[in-house]
Amino acid sequence: MAEPGEQLPEEVLALIFRHLPLRDRAAAARVCRAWAAAATCSTVWHNTNISCDCELEGIQPQYLSACLDHVQNLRLEFVPSREPSRLAAIELLTALAGRNPELRGLCLECRGEKRLFDSGRDVLDAVHALCRAARALRHLDLRRLPFTLDDALVLQVAHGCPELCSLFLDNSTLVGSVGPGSVLELLEACPCLRALGLHLASLSRTALEALAAPERAPFELLALRCACPEDARASPLPNEAWAELSRRHPGLAVELELEPALPAESVTRVLQPAVPVAALRLSLSGDTVGPVRFAARHYAATLRALEVRAAASAELDAALEELAERCAGLREVHCFCVVRPSVLHAFRTHCSRLRSYTLKLTREPHPWRPALVA
Rank of each mutant, 00 (worst) to 15 (best):
R340D: 04
R340E: 11
R340P: 00
R340I: 00
R340F: 00
P341D: 11
P341S: 14
S342K: 14
S342W: 08
S342G: 02
S342D: 11
V343C: 05
V343Q: 08
L344W: 08
L344G: 04
L344V: 10
L344D: 02
L344R: 15
H345Q: 14
H345I: 07
H345V: 05
H345L: 07
H345E: 15
H345W: 09
H345S: 09
H345A: 14
A346R: 12
A346P: 02
A346W: 08
A346K: 10
A346D: 07
A346M: 09
R348K: 14
R348F: 01
R348W: 06
R348M: 13
R348A: 11
T349R: 13
T349Q: 12
T349G: 03
T349V: 01
T349D: 10
T349C: 02
H350Y: 15
H350Q: 09
H350K: 11
H350P: 01
H350R: 15
H350W: 15
C351H: 10
C351L: 13
C351R: 14
C351N: 07
S352F: 03
S352N: 04
S352H: 12
S352T: 12
S352D: 09
S352C: 05
S352G: 00
R353T: 05
R353A: 12
L354T: 01
L354E: 02
L354F: 05
L354M: 02
L354Y: 03
R355F: 02
R355M: 05
R355L: 06
S356G: 04
S356R: 15
S356N: 10
S356F: 00
S356E: 11
S356C: 08
S356V: 03
Y357D: 03
Y357S: 01
Y357K: 13
Y357I: 06
Y357E: 07
Y357N: 05
Y357Q: 09
Y357L: 09
Y357A: 04
Y357W: 13
T358Q: 05
T358K: 12
T358F: 05
T358W: 07
T358N: 08
L359E: 02
L359H: 10
L359G: 02
K360F: 09
K360M: 11
K360E: 05
K360A: 06
K360V: 02
L361S: 03
L361W: 07
L361M: 13
L361Y: 05
T362C: 04
T362F: 05
T362Y: 07
T362V: 13
T362S: 08
T362M: 05
R363H: 12
R363M: 03
R363V: 04
R363I: 05
R363P: 00
R363F: 01
E364D: 12
E364S: 11
E364H: 12
E364P: 00
E364L: 12
E364W: 08
E364A: 07
E364K: 11
E364Y: 09
P365G: 05
P365I: 08
P365T: 09
P365Y: 13
P365C: 07
P365A: 14
H366L: 14
H366D: 06
H366Q: 12
H366P: 00
H366G: 03
H366R: 15
P367R: 14
P367M: 02
P367K: 08
W368V: 01
W368Y: 08
W368I: 02
W368Q: 09
W368T: 06
W368A: 02
R369G: 00
R369P: 00
R369S: 01
R369D: 00
R369F: 02
P370V: 11
P370I: 15
P370L: 11
P370F: 15
P370Q: 10
P370R: 15
